[in-house]
Design a protein around this nucleic acid. Structure first.
Length: 460
RNA sequence: GGCAGGGUGGCUCAGUGGUACGGCGGAGGACUGCAAAUCCUUUAUUCGCGAGUUCGAUUCUCGCCCCUGCCUCCA
């Protein structure tokens, strides 16, 4: 079975066939780097990380491009408030972003272009739009895109221009010929970051950077464009209008959009203020827990964020880690993660990256491995499947003992008590043995007596 | 108002025209000195409500109810 993906453009699941055989060009909208990322951002990054990994698994040579928006009103505002140069702020936030992504075990994209380093491409694209009559210079000096000039406007988001205008919440801007027109190039006010252009010193509008950088790296027509659902309109709609009008290409062929992260059934967002940053969550939970939490729901469905949901994700990981620990202790962990993947897992992933179903396959193999271990059977094939799935999903990559021991470094006292308890057990002094176990339990240490001695883990 | 996506066991999350995957939790059992972990068994006559198509619908169609999102910046 080959890969099928849900294409937002056609609102249907389609066979995935890349433009060039064996190669995939994928562009994902990154973040505006004015603040730390929250769990909603984590979702996009993890979702597309898994998509990236799966495409590579299928043998494609993937050119994965994810941008940084490092010029923007919010950046300017935030930098001013903090008394920083915008460049300082964006550099800092990009570093923080990378730290979060590394923690979440997201592979680095092939390219991570910054908008400020692609001014020429943007200016060139705007020039073409002006020349071809899709854009005009307004009285304000801003360059605007004339939405009504572009035929297919609204195709992606399923909107038509007249509906948009009638129910419009768009502010009426006197210099716009049509309320829906959007900015391609914005005149700089004194003190704002600015670049020279045919229309004077200024900065690009938000949408143009993605059109320019995606086409710049991947060509006028490329395979996949992704991002959060909220970018569908107007951002992606505008990207399409710009790119197709400017260079006549088809732009992205498959549009993939992930669902939101909700809190109390409400979208997590900056404007509502109901967000948790990734680093906040990581103070309380291991990054793999967050990753597992995200993979537990299909990428297009809403994902409800709560401590309880994270606890469930952790419980699932604990189960997988128990098996990993058994394998480690039995000396049966394979040296390589390159084992064959079970068919159920492959089918699930090929069906629009159905990670919940893939996880079901993983848990099934996990059980089979435990069963085989209990029975002392030869199960190296199953074990190889097990670790290959974990590696592909980017979970259960820590040392199993370390996982259960938490961040505790000073564990000598625990080992000493365990040794004492072993002696007590040997002399059948179970009262003493149980007293030690209770003493440890009171400190959150749970003991497990296995065939090869006693191991321990932190409770919860 | 327009458009999009949802409503599945105690919680969570898949899925399918032939009575429902997995995880967590619960119950019983095996193992254990007792536990823990693991394994086994079990835990939805039922998939928001009503009608239709069908031999048969949770899955298709229609209507209704409820929820969320987008329509302004937003992953």
């Amino acid at each position: 079975m080959s890969l099928k993906v849900y294409n937002s453009l056609t609102r249907s699941k389609e066979q995935f066939l890349p433009l060039a055989e064996g190669r995939v060009g994928m562009y994902v909208c990154g973040v505006t780097v004015y603040d730390h990322c929250h769990v909603g951002h984590a979702r996009v990054m993890v979702v597309f990380d898994v998509i990236y990994r799966w495409l590579k698994q299928l043998g494609y040579d993937v050119n994965y491009v994810r941008n940084f928006t490092d010029v923007d009103d919010k950046i300017i505002k935030r930098a001013n408030e903090a008394g920083l140069d915008p460049k300082q702020l964006t550099d800092e936030m990009i570093e923080a972003f990378h730290k979060d992504m590394d923690a979440l075990n997201c592979l680095r994209p092939t390219h991570e272009p910054r908008a400020t380093l692609h001014m020429n491409e943007m200016i060139e694209m705007i020039t073409q739009l002006v020349e071809k009559g899709f854009a005009y210079v307004a009285d304000s000096g801003d360059v605007l895109y004339s939405v009504r000039k572009f035929d297919g406007y609204g195709q992606l988001s399923g909107k038509n221009i007249d509906d948009l205008e009638s129910g419009s919440r768009v502010e009426v801007d006197g210099s716009k010929r049509d309320p829906l027109d959007f900015v391609l190039w914005k005149q700089a006010k004194p003190g704002e970051p600015a670049w020279s252009s045919p229309w004077g010193r200024g900065r690009p509008g938000w949408h143009i950077e993605c059109s320019a950088m995606s086409c710049g790296h991947l060509g006028d027509t490329f395979d996949i464009h992704g991002g959060g659902m909220d970018l569908k309109f107007p951002h992606h709609e505008n990207e399409i209008a710009q790119a197709r009008a400017a260079n006549g290409g088809g732009f992205a062929r498959y549009w993939l959009h992930n669902g939101f992260v909700n809190i109390n059934e409400e979208k997590m967002s900056k404007s509502l203020g109901n967000f948790f940053t990734i680093c906040e969550v990581l103070k309380k939970y291991h990054p793999e827990v967050l990753r597992m939490f995200i993979l537990g729901t299909h990428y297009r469905s809403p994902l409800d964020f709560s401590d309880q949901a994270l606890d469930v994700a952790k419980a699932g990981l604990d189960r997988l880690y128990e098996t990993k620990r058994r394998l480690h202790e039995a000396g049966k962990l394979p040296a390589s993660d390159q084992g064959a993947l079970p068919g159920s897992f492959v089918n699930a992933m090929n069906d629009d990256f159905n990670t919940p179903e893939a996880l079901a396959g993983l848990f099934h193999v996990c059980k089979e491995v435990n069963r085989g271990l209990d029975a002392g059977e030869e199960i190296s094939g199953l074990i190889a499947q097990f670790t290959a799935m974990l590696s592909l999903l980017g979970i259960v990559q820590e040392d199993a003992a370390q996982w259960f021991h938490g961040g505790d470094l000073d564990t000598g006292w625990i080992d000493a008590l365990i040794a004492e308890r072993s002696e007590a057990k040997k002399s059948r002094d179970f009262a003493r043995a149980d007293a030690i176990r209770d003493e440890l339990a009171a400190k959150g240490i749970v003991l497990e007596d296995g065939a090869d001695g006693t191991s321990w883990k932190q409770a919860g």
